[in-house]
Design a protein around this nucleic acid. Structure first.
Lengths: 204, 204, 204, 204
DNA sequence: CATGAATGAGGGTTCATTCAT
DNA sequence: TATGAATGAACCCTCATTCAT
């Protein structure tokens, strides 16, 4: 995955993968608790169970950790969405199910999602682009699924915007839970959002 | 406004207000450019046109500046929304117009909106609550406007969620403009979103 | 002096000068004791009588301190040589006296001289050039003095090399004192070197 | 050679010698490029073609590498000088030839010579003494050769200083080449310096 | 003998905040 | 009120050295 993007001075790739998993896991907890800037590299190392020196064997800068975290979160959502959508027979019913499972994933990843909106700006342009690309891909999945499930001639822009809305409303469940959880259950939230989508598709 | 919330060692309230306006203005520019953490208090002071010592006469911590900025941005949106919605005769048509003007404001404030998602977490709970309260208020405005414009018995939860969607979709135009502007004009975007709202309201 | 070369965030130039003098003085002692790399910025600050933060108000990097030190040492030698040589009537006798006083200065500056051979390479090219230029100037002083005191037609290359020899033999008294002091007094050393020069000038 | 001075955890002395040669060679290149302190032990190991662990089998500290390098350079000059001077019949002509070949060696070793003035101070007193002793020896060679070639009763101090001068002027060709090479060829330089020596010897 | 992952003390630098003027 | 020099805790990162395999 990130082996081309983030350099390590350790050679054993299997070890790199294992250590980086530890790093990502600790960083997610810490970033969610205190944000990227308030988290120190020493804390990440300590939480990961090794020394600061070891951390820097697997990562070159603190920013690298941020990228690793973004990538891990993004990848997880991406893979989930991809498998949920790649159906033999595209149909609206299947799109709804995919969205449903997407929302449930977000619910499961609530800590992680909060991080997504923190510091993409801190990333070097090159790394930032990797992250945003994947995000664009995800929106595209949703859009394509909609287009394939609707009669030909369905407005592409409309599909694009709906895909964006779905995507963001999913994340909204994560990063605005302080307001939404007071009034909605996950089931509730999903049902409503899918209902809204339905009529947005049917109506002209 | 913030006179109860943020302490100053200067007495002249008129002066406080003037200086703080300068601070907010500079900070918005800087935070948007480099984010809250990468901006130094010295830079804020310099951009504001006075010395670091003076900055600390009108603000007690760097976090105070963040709060001031949040508050200023939030207030502007809030006031805009309030005056747009407070109609004598609530009607759907008027709600649509309010949303339209809300989206246009966001478009106008694109720099500011990006800041909103940065560092609410950095605020002391006490200050954070002030900000979030105002946000809740705004959603409530939208929700109430919807309820008043719809026949009695309209599902309150549905209204709540629609209000949230509208609110977030507005902000989405600000913080996801890197993806949206490629495919939509502001007019376009507004039209589509209001269309979606319409059928979400009409349909059962 | 260094005001164009080394930036400071303090405005009061008189203060800059005073503080930098302290820095230079402390750094000379420390560099001579432990060398540039083994000396920490914290030590320099402490020895200077202020905090590490203050040090960095007057200097931007550790390398800047090195430059300041080089410049101070070089300048002192330079000024000494300049005033010793700028005579109304150039004459060999006067050149000998200048050399004599140059050697005595080096003797006085033994600690400083050792530093000169340490880390010019560590300096940014731009700063290094400033230092080397001054050194070239000094050799030129000696060379010109020789040429003016000798009959016209004296071999210029010979003068150049003699100037270099004198210059380096002066420094040799500083940086090889561990071997020379065992066998020579300063008086001795000067007398011999000037004697050598004399016959190198007279003979063909 | 260094087997008594620098400890190794490897027994096979032939191997030690081979490995150390590699170490010295790499270190010379690196020290000359970036100086002792800016060169890392990892770099030395890598350039030597083996792992960091292996490096530490043949050397106990980084300082040991410095010593090894000093010793290698010094030894080479020393041996050269020794064989050049140890004549059956001491004569001035032979001294001049020895000096000539010494200067040519320095010219050949320009990279190495630069290193000599870097960090003798970093060495433990015990190691430093080994290096300086050899240097003293070299000066003594020159001095003795002079004394043997001159009529009895030649001033010993004078010989001592001349020997020092020759020695340092040789090194000067190495470490001040940035200024000398602009104006002298090696031939030139040697000729002048030997000329100077001649008249310093002849004249009273 | 060789390897290279692990360690952690320590270094250079930044920056929010204070306080005497 | 306004200034800006002074402070020092804290941060990111490096690198000599060790040791289990």
């Amino acid at each position: 995955m990130a082996f081309q993007t983030i350099k390590s001075s350790v050679k054993d790739t299997e070890l790199i993968e294992r250590r980086r998993k530890q790093i990502i896991q600790s960083a997610i907890v810490l970033f969610q608790e205190k944000g990227f800037h308030r988290t120190t590299t020493r804390e990440i190392a300590k939480e990961s169970g090794f020394s600061i020196g070891t951390l820097y064997e697997y990562v070159r800068t603190k920013e690298d950790v941020l990228f690793l975290v973004y990538e891990a979160i993004n990848d997880r959502v991406y893979n989930h969405l991809e498998t949920a959508i790649e159906l033999k027979e595209p149909s609206l019913e299947n799109v709804y199910m995919a969205i449903d499972s997407y929302y449930r994933l977000i619910d499961d990843m609530e800590e992680e999602v909060v991080i997504l909106y923190q510091e993409v700006k801190s990333l070097a342009p090159h790394l930032r682009e990797v992250i945003l690309d994947k995000e664009r891909q995800m929106v595209k999945f949703l859009k394509d699924a909609l287009l394939l499930s609707m009669p030909e001639g369905f407005d592409k822009q409309r599909a694009e915007l709906l895909a964006n809305n779905i995507f963001v409303q999913g994340q909204m469940w994560g990063f605005r839970r302080w307001i939404l959880r007071k009034q909605f259950t996950l089931e509730n939230y999903i049902k409503y959002q899918i209902d809204f989508l339905k009529c947005s598709l049917n109506n002209d």
